[in-house]
Write a protein that binds this DNA or RNA. Structure first.
Length: 692
DNA sequence: TAATGGGGGTTTTTT
DNA sequence: ACCCCCATTA
């Protein structure tokens, strides 16, 4: 018979079978955390007879959730010698904090005073709202221009919400230059909250806030929490105070709680997470037991040496020191490659990538990791020039999916006609309709004026539409009519038919507004078909918002899948992944650690953890590239450069673990021999003192 | 109203 | 190079 625990090492086995009701697992990088967690879950279900649907697994990414739910199901079906893994008795409830929150809110919308077809807006919608509000609320143009840009406004708002700190405090920490305008920013935030309510929409933060509110309620809360007997949380180092609150309520009864994480990999402080939460877990959850996973099965000894050396330099240290698995082979020390400038770096990376491929390592086994998405710009040019295919993760432009957002906006209107944001978007697809006419139309439709609890109904919209149409050109009137009809028609039809009707009505508008119509229309067909498993259109829209395309490859057509390609990824997006070879570029002070993060000591420590995450992605080969000269500005095309020191993380104990080489092109001779003085670092320190 | 051009500013990471 | 804002023009 299949033994669930057979492939586990003693540490992992301890995690799998522990009967602690509060368990913290400190799991270092590459130590088989997923293996241990899925074994624990399967063990609960197979050996301790827990029903699968009473186990809740919370993660931070969709990918992690999917992976663990299906691996658990596989384990269970093997242990029971059952043929299929799709049986509900084998599938636990798993998802990101946000998606589980969303499902919970849908089920309890009425009890929570939410309108029943509430919409979920993505960060770019939210930012657009911020933009509109700024223009409405701030009269003075000069003042308006001094305020942060829309995305920054949203960041400030989010951070204030996540940390439950007043805006003024948030500004001090994250945007000190905007402190003088804190009054205006507060007014904008207040309006933002109010408008979301009027429109009947929730943003990402709201999902968690409402979830917590529901859980904190004396009768609703326990009812939700009692749906589960066991709660497991992955990547616990990334939780913020709000999420800890949610968990406390979720396990307020008889439930058990297992959290797994690594304090060394806490890299989301901009979302108000802090490694303190995993470090202080026993204080918040009394009686907690702690286990550790310390044997790294991923990387060779020399790579682990670099990671441990980096950890040893952290002022507070990291809780786990990694031990290499005795079976790993490979003695090559990771390289620190000095390059003259960014182009030299691009050159060097390409050379190395091709060299490794010639040694038999396919491109797909290699990744190039960057601190900031734009760091790979010049490298991408060089990769293209040399015909090396690549796929970039992170930093996807939402606009590329504008047509998808258009149809989703229509979906949202169906269930929530007072969603002004969606109307605003859809109306502007009509010819001759810009912001001004769209706004007027919204007033005419009287989206909020209605008496009903959920605002206007679609029937009312249809009745008032002729008034709007009178103000439109002929073309706009004609192309709008089918959309309005499709919105109201077919409420009794199967969802997928209704969705298809809407798609057909919107398609001509898409054709009129965008290039690349073929690809876009295909996307929309897929989207309409995807509604056949859902119960409501607003659900489809929300799920889509919660799982945006993650790489440019996700949006592209399938053929890419068969090809061999290098992955370019931000370090943040690379967490949880691994490759045979990892190339970390731009490891120069100012880029990595990023200048932006150095306003306080916490910032520097987070950069160190980020660097740690980057290093520990590598299985067999690790190369760190240091361009000594790079462009001053993000988008600079001019010749203004600054000289940089290698990243401060490469000094001290770490230096001793690396093999240093210099990559020179003929043109670089001379350049590289210029004296390297410590001026940059000295000035940096001096200036840093000014801000404290 | 949408399209165009000039000018000024440009602070990372993402569920 | 790019984005954002504004004024001008069709």
């Amino acid at each position: 018979m299949f033994d669930l625990l057979a492939d586990l090492d003693p540490q992992q086995r301890a995690v799998a079978v522990s009967e602690a009701t509060r368990l913290r697992v400190m799991a270092g990088a590459g130590t088989g955390k997923t293996t241990a967690l899925t074994a624990r879950t399967a063990h609960l279900i197979v050996e301790r007879r827990v029903a699968a649907h009473r186990v809740l697994l919370l993660t931070f990414t969709r990918r992690a959730a999917r992976q663990m739910v299906s691996r658990t199901a596989t384990l269970i079906s093997r242990a029971r010698s059952a043929p299929s893994e799709s049986s509900p008795s084998q599938r636990i409830v798993g998802g990101t904090f946000h998606s589980i929150a969303h499902q919970t809110l849908r089920r309890n919308a009425q009890a929570l005073g939410l309108s029943d077809g509430f919409g979920v807006i993505d960060p770019s919608d939210a930012a657009d709202m911020m933009d509109v509000i700024r223009n409405d609320v701030i009269e003075d143009r000069a003042l308006r221009r001094r305020l942060p840009r829309k995305a920054t406004l949203l960041n400030i708002y989010t951070r204030a919400v996540d940390t439950a700190q007043p805006i003024s405090e948030t500004l001090e920490r994250t945007a000190p230059w905007a402190v003088r305008n804190s009054d205006e920013i507060m007014r904008i935030c207040r309006q933002y909250v109010q408008r979301k309510r009027e429109f009947g929409v929730l943003d990402f933060d709201d999902l968690l806030l409402y979830w917590r509110e529901a859980l904190a309620h004396p009768t609703i809360g326990p009812q939700i929490a009692n749906g589960y007997d066991h709660v497991l949380v992955d990547e616990y180092q990334d939780v913020n105070a709000l999420q800890v609150d949610v968990l406390q309520h979720l396990v307020g009864g008889e439930q058990t709680l297992t959290v797994v994480g690594d304090d060394a990999q806490s890299i989301y402080s901009f979302r108000a997470s802090s490694p303190d939460h995993i470090l202080e877990f026993p204080d918040v959850f009394p009686g907690a037991q702690t286990l550790a996973l310390t044997t790294n099965y991923r990387s060779t000894q020399p790579i682990i040496d670099v990671a441990n050396a980096l950890g040893s330099e952290a002022p507070r240290g990291f809780m786990t020191t990694l031990t290499a698995c005795p079976q790993t082979t490979g003695n090559d020390r990771p390289h620190l490659i000095r390059c003259a400038d960014e182009d030299g770096q691009s050159d060097s990376v390409c050379d190395r990538v091709l060299q490794l491929r010639e040694e038999g390592m396919s491109l797909r086994e290699q990744a190039i990791l960057v601190r900031a998405a734009h760091h790979s710009g010049r490298l991408e040019i060089e990769l293209t020039r040399r015909g090396i295919p690549f796929v970039k993760y992170g930093g996807l432009k939402y606009l590329e999916a504008a047509h998808v957002k258009d149809l989703l906006a229509v979906f949202r209107i169906v269930d929530n006609p007072r969603d002004e944001l969606s109307w605003f978007r859809v109306l502007q697809l009509l010819e001759g309709v810009g912001p001004a006419k769209a706004h007027k139309a919204i007033l005419t439709l009287g989206l909020h004026s209605s008496d009903g609890p959920n605002g206007v109904t679609l029937v009312e919209v249809q009745r008032r539409w002729p008034q709007v149409a009178a103000d439109l050109g002929r073309a706009a009137r004609q192309s709008a009519a089918p959309v309005i009809d499709a919105l109201t028609a077919a409420q009794h039809e199967p969802l997928v038919i209704h969705a298809e009707r809407l798609r057909a009505a919107v398609a001509p508008l898409i054709e009129a507004n965008y290039d690349n119509t073929d690809v876009r229309l295909t996307d929309l067909e897929a989207l309409a078909q995807a509604t056949n498993t859902a119960e409501r259109l607003c659900e489809v829209a929300a799920e889509h918002v919660l799982e945006p395309p993650h790489s440019t490859g996700d949006l592209a057509d399938q053929p890419v899948i068969d090809e061999d390609y290098v992955v370019i990824s931000t370090v943040h997006s690379a967490k949880g992944l691994e490759w045979d070879a990892v190339h970390v570029i731009h490891a120069a002070d100012g880029n990595f650690p990023s200048d932006m993060a150095l306003t306080d000591g916490d910032g520097l420590e987070e950069e160190r953890r980020l660097f740690y995450v980057a290093l520990t992605r590598a299985r067999r080969s690790l190369d760190i590239y240091v361009p000594l000269r790079f462009h001053v500005n993000r988008h600079a095309q001019d010749d203004r450069h600054i000289w940089a020191q290698p990243s401060r993380f490469l000094a001290g104990a770490v230096a001793a673990t690396l093999e240093e080489t210099t990559h020179l092109r003929p043109a670089d001779f001379g350049a590289i021999d210029l004296p390297r003085i410590d001026a940059a670092a000295a000035i940096h320190t001096r200036l840093d003192n000014l801000w404290q």
